[in-house]
Design a protein around this nucleic acid. Structure first.
Length: 489
RNA sequence: GGUCGGUUGGCCGAGUGGCUAGGCAACGGUCUGCAAAACCGUGUACGGCGGUUCGAAUCCGCCACUGACCUCCA
């Protein structure tokens, strides 16, 4: 196939043909969550984006090692006045052990990712489990001369580094601009320059999470874990590093600098960044009160939500936008996605019931080509989905007898449809409503049977009464040629 | 203030210099005792003003609006 996977590389700002470092194998590292709160919608975007990439790379035949970290050392709380660790702060508020908080929210994250049908990564390393590796990186950077110790902390010397290597190449920042934009501030004495960032930080007395080192009892800098863990599991050079656009600067820029300072060369070959999510056109953020947790989406228990949304609706909706575009969540858009996905899934059942004809009046080969071309074009899932809706029309037309399909084409269609809808996009039929015990089902079926009898007797009053009462109770009664079916909304 | 991005029909959301994105909604039809559901069909949109071009939503400039990150913070 001359149609090759192209990936948009943030570093070059271009789409590039993806060629792995080692033939047939791909090393993929993605920045995972900081586990100090419940998993929310913002966590789902990168998870689904790189899950799609992971699935597609495997589908293409690559052996993929996918590393996605858990950040459990914690970053500084955005709105905290003190330089206190997010996780330590939360721990004090909740009167829990830091690792207890970490475990609680890690479990929450895992549970929600499973609901979203996000595959587990190959390795999910924790920052707290790699303190020694991080200290080793600090030593290497110090030995290379790109860091200095100051009052028990170790800082990365950005200006020194920038003399030897380009700094800011990923985010398009120029060091001169950053310097001229820097104000004089108090409390910067420890750093030689405001641009410098900590790679080891001495712990304040109230700071609970701390480890001994030759500089101080402290903790590693927040950019360091990814450098240390990607190197440990994927090597000094690896293929793809992904994460949210919000991490581009300073996090990823710092990662590049740390790896280059420590090893003398670049670590990452392709940088990928997924865009952010907005809610009713507004940025999603905790301070704005619109950071809806995934649990709330799934249960519908949030003031902004009109109803509960199935995890698959969230997943599908994310896939209907390209990963590098912002995506706006609203009840209207979600409900539109919900209906569209139902149609897509229903067509797969219709497809399984199709009978082949001698000849095809439809072109499955072309459809397949278009679907793969879309995926190869920087994972353009919205385009691929558009083509799948063309497949829906084809399927329904065949079922209607307006088109015909050969046995060979039908197999190809099934294979294509199943590959994209289930294997790559990772969609599943929504879970059946709970309380679906057998007696309950039988009772509803009985009511519908009574209605069927009434209809046979042209007793429309009784038939309509049953239907209307069931509707009032929240059931949806659907009459089809093969009889009535129902579901609970 | 700096850097980068966005502005597409009622809503969401793709996109290439000229050739239908797609979904939802809406409307029309098929089906139905009626309805719902399901299925089929229909829509000619691209922030404003200039410019380049035979031709621009797609390229360039300016303006407006908007987003992200940074400018305080490990």
């Amino acid at each position: 196939m001359d149609n090759q996977l192209q990936i948009y590389n943030t570093l070059s700002r271009k789409k590039e043909i993806f060629v792995p470092l080692h033939e047939g194998k791909v090393g993929l590292y993605v920045c995972g969550p900081t586990v100090y709160g419940k998993a929310h919608l913002g966590h789902a975007r990168p998870a689904v984006t790189y899950d799609l990439l992971f699935r597609y790379l495997k589908h293409l035949g690559y052996k993929v090692r996918y590393v996605r970290n858990i950040t459990d050392v914690g970053h500084l709380a955005n709105d905290a006045d003190e330089g206190e660790d997010k996780i330590a702060q939360k721990a004090r508020l909740d009167e829990l052990e830091p690792m207890e908080v970490v475990q609680l929210y890690t479990n929450d994250y895992h549970k929600n990712m499973e609901k979203l049908n996000v595959l587990s990564p190959s390795i999910e390393p924790r920052a707290t489990g790699h303190i020694i590796e991080q200290i080793t990186v600090v030593e290497k950077i110090l030995a290379a001369g790109y860091a200095y110790e100051s009052q028990g902390s170790v800082y990365f010397d950005v200006e020194k580094y920038a003399k030897d290597y380009p700094y800011g190449e990923l985010s398009g920042r120029k060091i001169e601009d950053m310097q001229s934009n820097t104000r004089e501030l108090d409390g910067q004495d420890e750093k030689h320059s405001p641009l410098d960032f900590a790679i080891w930080k001495k712990a304040a007395p109230e700071h609970i999470m701390r480890w001994p080192s030759r500089w101080s009892d402290g903790f590693p800098g927040w950019h360091l874990e990814c450098t240390a863990m990607s190197c440990k599991y994927l090597g000094e050079t690896f293929d793809i590093h992904g994460g949210g656009m919000d991490l581009c600067f300073p996090h990823h820029e710092a990662e590049i600098a740390q790896a280059k300072a420590a090893n003398g060369h670049d670590a990452v070959r392709y940088w990928m960044h997924n865009n952010m999510i907005t809610l009713n056109g507004q940025k999603m953020g905790k301070s704005l009160g619109n950071a809806i947790s995934l649990d709330e989406f799934f249960s519908g228990e949030h003031a902004l939500l009109e109803k509960a949304y199935d995890p698959m609706t969230i997943r599908f909706f994310m896939l209907t936008a390209h990963y590098r575009s912002t995506l706006d969540f609203s009840n209207e858009a979600l409900q539109a996605a919900e209906k569209g996905m139902e149609r897509l899934l229903k067509a797969s059942e219709t497809m399984n019931g199709l009978s082949p004809a001698d000849k095809s009046s439809v072109n499955i080969g072309e459809l397949k080509e278009k679907c793969y071309a879309a995926m190869n074009d920087d994972l353009n899932s919205p385009i691929a989905i558009a083509h799948l809706f063309d497949a829906v029309k084809i399927i329904n037309s065949i079922a209607d007898g307006k088109e015909s399909i050969s046995a060979e084409d039908l197999d190809a269609l099934k294979s294509l449809y199943n590959t994209f809808v289930f294997d790559l996009f990772g969609l599943k039929k929504p879970e059946q409503a709970e309380g679906s015990n057998e007696a309950f089902n039988a009772a509803i079926d009985l009511l519908l049977q009574l209605r069927q009898d009434a209809k046979a007797n042209k007793d429309w009053a009784t038939a309509d009464k049953i239907r209307n009462e069931l509707t009032a109770l929240g059931f949806v009664v659907k009459d089809t040629k093969d009889g009535a079916s129902w579901e609970l909304k």
